[in-house]
Computed example of a mutant assay.
Amino acid sequence: MSTIKRLPDSEFNVLKIIWHLPNPVTSAQIIEQLGEDNHWKPQTLLTVLARLTEKGFLESTRKGRERHYTALISEEEYLAVETSDFLNRYKGNSLGNLAKTLFAQQQLSEQDIADIRSLLNQK
């Protein structure tokens, strides 16, 4: 995959489940993790899985009557792209501007501040 593109929420939610299950996974395992509250129909899930496969996020192999899906990109790789894209779009690619916004709106807990301090000290 040359360039990682941002995924729609439905595709991201399915991929997130796949990342947190031992790979490869089946659509039945994914439906089970989605739970009844999400009201996913099997055909809808198969369409989303096909899209993720076409986009290069998943590998699909047939074993008997079922398809098995394996993630081709890690959660960390995808989230790094998402974070970079977010910073670029909303804060002019400035981590400092993002931090100022968070502090101004008092969105950081004491634990958040301690975690940030620790990260800065490691740098």
Rank of each mutant, 00 (worst) to 15 (best):
100 K>N: 13
9 D>L: 08
22 P>T: 08
43 Q>N: 08
87 L>I: 04
43 Q>Y: 05
112 D>F: 11
17 I>V: 11
1 M>S: 12
54 E>H: 06
58 L>C: 03
7 L>I: 02
10 S>M: 05
43 Q>R: 09
35 G>Q: 08
120 L>M: 10
83 T>A: 12
121 N>Y: 11
59 E>L: 07
69 Y>R: 01
71 A>N: 09
91 K>R: 14
28 A>H: 06
54 E>M: 05
59 E>P: 00
3 T>F: 12
120 L>D: 05
117 R>D: 10
19 W>E: 00
53 T>P: 02
16 K>L: 08
110 E>W: 05
47 T>F: 10
66 E>D: 11
5 K>L: 10
55 K>S: 11
28 A>R: 14
106 Q>P: 03
115 D>H: 13
116 I>G: 10
34 L>K: 15
117 R>M: 07
71 A>R: 01
75 E>C: 03
65 R>T: 13
50 A>L: 09
47 T>S: 12
62 R>N: 12
50 A>E: 15
65 R>P: 06
100 K>Y: 11
63 K>T: 13
27 S>I: 01
37 D>H: 05
89 R>W: 10
75 E>D: 15
52 L>P: 00
42 P>D: 05
74 S>F: 04
121 N>D: 11
50 A>D: 15
110 E>T: 14
12 F>H: 03
93 N>S: 15
5 K>I: 09
28 A>T: 11
109 S>C: 09
30 I>E: 00
101 T>C: 05
50 A>F: 06
4 I>M: 14
117 R>T: 07
32 E>D: 13
11 E>L: 12
57 F>T: 01
89 R>I: 08
46 L>S: 13
104 A>Y: 05
8 P>K: 13
116 I>D: 13
21 L>M: 06
58 L>D: 00
73 I>L: 12
95 L>W: 14
17 I>E: 00
7 L>V: 00
84 S>F: 08
73 I>C: 03
99 A>C: 06
41 K>T: 12
44 T>K: 04
77 E>I: 01
113 I>T: 09
120 L>K: 08
94 S>F: 07
97 N>E: 09
67 R>E: 07
29 Q>H: 12
85 D>V: 01
69 Y>Q: 02
52 L>I: 07
104 A>N: 09
